[in-house]
Amino acid sequence: MGVCNIDHSQESVVKKLKSQEEFLPEDLTEKLYHFLDEDRSQETLNELLHLFKKYDLASKSEQEERDGQLTALIS
């Protein structure tokens, strides 16, 4: 994953999560919403948005890799 130079708001990250929700594992989606109930650092928000971006277009193996990165990020 490349580095994103744009700072994303918590609201835009939640909006992106909602747009990709149907493609993410249900249990992970619930954990992500719970994680985003609290304020997060700009770095974390940017990383989350980058992992959500075009998730639906990623291959199954790429989605699984992102799932692992998302799980590690919110743990």
Rank of each mutant, 00 (worst) to 15 (best):
Cys4His: 14
Cys4Ser: 15
Cys4Ile: 15
Asn5Trp: 13
Asn5Ser: 12
Ile6Gly: 05
His8Asn: 05
His8Glu: 12
Ser9Lys: 05
Gln10Met: 13
Gln10Arg: 13
Ser12Phe: 08
Ser12Cys: 09
Ser12Pro: 04
Lys15Gly: 03
Lys15Glu: 12
Lys16Val: 05
Lys16Ile: 01
Lys18Ala: 15
Ser19Arg: 15
Gln20Thr: 12
Gln20Ile: 08
Glu21Phe: 12
Glu22Ala: 09
Phe23Asp: 14
Leu24Ser: 11
Pro25Cys: 02
Pro25Met: 08
Glu26Phe: 00
Asp27Asn: 04
Asp27Ala: 08
Leu28Gln: 03
Leu28Pro: 02
Thr29Cys: 11
Thr29Leu: 07
Glu30Val: 07
Lys31Ala: 14
Leu32Cys: 05
Leu32Ile: 03
Tyr33Met: 05
Tyr33Trp: 10
Leu36Gln: 07
Asp37Ala: 01
Arg40Phe: 05
Arg40Asp: 10
Thr44Trp: 00
Thr44Arg: 12
Leu45Val: 14
Leu45Glu: 11
Asn46Ser: 11
Leu48Asn: 08
Leu48Cys: 13
Leu49Ser: 00
Leu49Met: 15
Leu49Val: 07
His50Cys: 12
His50Val: 00
Phe52Pro: 06
Phe52Cys: 09
Phe52Asp: 12
Lys53Cys: 12
Tyr55Ser: 10
Leu57Ser: 13
Ala58Val: 02
Ser59Ile: 01
Ser59Leu: 09
Ser59Phe: 06
Lys60Met: 11
Lys60Glu: 13
Lys60Gly: 02
Ser61Trp: 11
Ser61Glu: 15
Glu62Asp: 10
Glu64Asp: 03
Glu64Arg: 04
Glu64Cys: 02
Asp67Thr: 00
Gly68Trp: 00
Gln69Asn: 08
Gln69Thr: 00
Leu70Phe: 06
Thr71Lys: 00
Thr71Arg: 02
Ala72Met: 13
Leu73Gln: 14
Leu73Glu: 12
Ile74Asp: 09
Ser75Ile: 02
